[in-house]
Every structure is written in C-alpha cells, then in structure tokens.
C-alpha cells in the first residue's frame, strides 16, 4: 500500500491526465490568440511585428519568477515573498556589481545574486518543512524581511549598475529582432518544463501536492524535497530580478511589493491548481504572456489605468472558473 501510494496519486489514467493538462494549454493559448488578434484591430500600433518580442521582454521578469513559483504551487504551497524578494535580489545584484559597492565582474556578480536568491528559497523551505510553518505565514514573514533588508542595504536610494555588459541581459539582440531577455525567458521555460516533467524534483512536487502523507509514507524525504523546491523558486526569483533590473540598470529598492500577486496570477491562469498536484509550465509561460499582452494592449488603446485592473482581474477569474467547470465535467464523466 505505502509503496504504491505516489503512483495511485498520479496514474489514474496517465493518458487522461496528459490530455487534461494539454486541454488547459489549448485553452490558455486560445485565449492569448483571441486577445492578441483583438488588440491588432483595436489598438493603434499593436499590429507592428515588433510588439510580440516587446511583450516577451516585458513578461520576462514576472514570467521567470512564475516558472519557479509553479513548482511551489504544485506542492500546494504558496510563495508570497517573490515580490519583495525580487527587490532584495535586485538590490544584491547592484550591491555585488555596482561601482560604488563591490564592483565584481559580471559573471561573478550574477552567480552570487542567483545563489543569494537560492538562499532566500532555502530559508523559506526550511521554515516550512523543518519548523513546520504554514507556507502562507512563512513566506509572508520573508516578504517583510526582504522588503526591510532591501531598504537597509540600499539605504532607500536608487542604485545603478554601471557595468555596460549588464544590459546584454535585456534589450540587446543577439538574434536580430528578439531581445535577449525574451530569449532567456524562452530558454528558462524549456529548462523548467524539463525539471517539472522529467526529473524527480517535478514529480515529487506534484506528488506532495496530491497527497503529502502518502508521498512521505512511500519513503520520499518530503522535508528535503520541499526545501529544494523552495530553493528552485528562489533561484528563478533571482534570475527574474536580474532580468528585471537589466533593462534600465537602475534598481529601486521599494518597488517589488505587489508583484507576487502578478506571479501567482500568471501561474493560476496557466492552469496550475492552487490546491496542488497539478502544474503546467507552458501554461505559466502563456499566462505571463497573456497578462502583459493585456497590459500593453490596454495601454496602447489608452484605457484608463483603473479599468486595466478590472479587465485583468476578470481574466484571472474567468481562467480559474473555466478550469473548474472542466474539472467538474471530467470528474462527473
């Protein structure tokens, strides 16, 4: 019984599960196409082919963080610390690489910044799995800690990263027409998809989300894997922070607050269940893209800011609602 537990969670028709998750992909992707085509007619300038790589560039920071958050949400957990964590990682990037601070070379500075993000994740994971704090509380605490540390380390002033190579990570186009940030986002999406679908990390994340107790009883070191999963989210958070600050090479320490909700929205729109056990990386990618397509399109249509919030909110609700109906039908069938 105990040895087969993780399998019973995932196998009730592997084919059906695959079909279900690909249906969700089709759904979100369809929504993206509809919205995109709508703006091509409704918003002046939107049909310019340069808009698509631009939207990818704009989605990259949130999207990359959302890729990592997908693993956390797959376990049934949540990470509220990614918004201010982004600020903290960006401040650390500026601290490692900024001229008036440590002034480290690009590669070393980036490595340290990414490791720092991983460390934030490990602390989150430890608080959750060793100290037994609920993910919501543990990451809420980290959200406040990160916010404060970002302000302390930066002395509440904007920081600049003068290293000219830093901008290579954002708007510079190694492949003509595609900003490097967009390319990195695509590449990391592939990496995350492989991690989720082909490695133990992804499988255990889903298994923990389906039935944590059964997973533990089947001999999986749930505590260790949870720490690793939150660490993964932290690593992706740091990469998102680096891409975020590379566009202008300016880091403003107080501005990440609230981004955690964008990240969670992207994951949820993509069809990953907040209850855990079901996750979809391509969905997350498309979810982030959909949100920034809406933002860009509505801005280009000159829609008032307050209405932009309303529209994006309705899309989030519609995505989750459609997903619920589909699951109810699948359960009834």
């Amino acid at each position: 019984m105990s040895t087969t537990a993780p399998d019973t969670a995932t196998t009730p028709g592997r084919l059906v599960t695959t079909l279900r998750s690909s249906l969700q992909q089709v759904f979100v992707f369809g929504a993206l196409i509809v919205v995109y085509v709508f703006f091509m007619f409704a918003a002046r300038g939107f049909s310019d082919p340069a808009i698509l790589p631009d939207i990818l560039l704009r989605s990259a920071p949130i999207g990359i963080m959302a890729l990592g958050a997908t693993f956390v949400i797959a376990t049934g957990g949540i990470d509220l610390s990614v918004g201010t964590g982004l600020s903290l990682c960006a401040v650390m990037t500026a601290y490692f690489m900024g001229g008036q601070f440590m002034n480290l070379p690009l590669a070393l500075g980036l490595l340290l910044a990414i490791l720092f993000g991983g460390l934030v994740g490990v602390v989150n994971g430890t608080n959750i799995s060793i100290l037994g704090l609920p993910p919501f509380i543990a990451t809420l605490g980290m959200m406040m800690v990160a916010r404060g540390l970002a302000l302390v380390i930066s002395d509440t002033k904007p920081m600049q990263i003068e290293n000219p190579d830093f901008k290579v990570l954002s708007t510079v186009q190694t492949i003509p027409g595609i900003p490097n940030a967009a390319l990195i986002f695509l590449l990391l999406t592939v990496v995350a998809a492989v991690l989720l679908n082909k490695t133990l990390l992804g499988r255990y994340a889903l298994a923990i989300g389906s039935n944590e107790e059964a997973t533990r009883l089947s001999g999986v070191n749930v505590k260790k894997w949870k720490i690793l999963i939150y660490m993964t989210a932290g690593l992706f958070m740091a990469m998102g922070a680096i891409i975020y600050s590379a566009r202008t090479a300016v880091v403003q320490p107080a501005e990440g607050l609230g981004l955690e909700l964008d990240v969670i929205a992207a994951v949820v729109i993509g069809g990953t269940s907040l209850a855990g056990g079901r996750a979809n990386i391509i969905g997350t990618f498309v979810g982030a893209l959909l949100m920034k397509t809406l933002l860009t399109g509505l801005q280009m249509m000159q829609v008032n800011q307050s209405w932009q919030f309303v529209v994006i909110g309705v899309i989030v609700l519609a995505a989750v609602f459609a997903d619920n109906i589909r699951r109810a039908r699948a359960a009834a069938a």
Binding site: D48, P158, T296, Q302, N304, Q305
Partner: peptide, 25 residues
Amino acid sequence: LLEPLVAPSVEEATGAAKSLIQSNP
C-alpha cells in the same frame, strides 16, 4: 494629451512609455 499611464516603478514606466510611443507615431 494622452490618457495618463500609471507606473509605480522604473520597469513599469519603461513599458508604459514604450506603449505610448508605439501606439502614437
């Protein structure tokens, strides 16, 4: 005068300003 876009951060301001430029040659 175009509708004001609200952007609390440098990153958001960049994206918003770019939307303004691209939709208004």
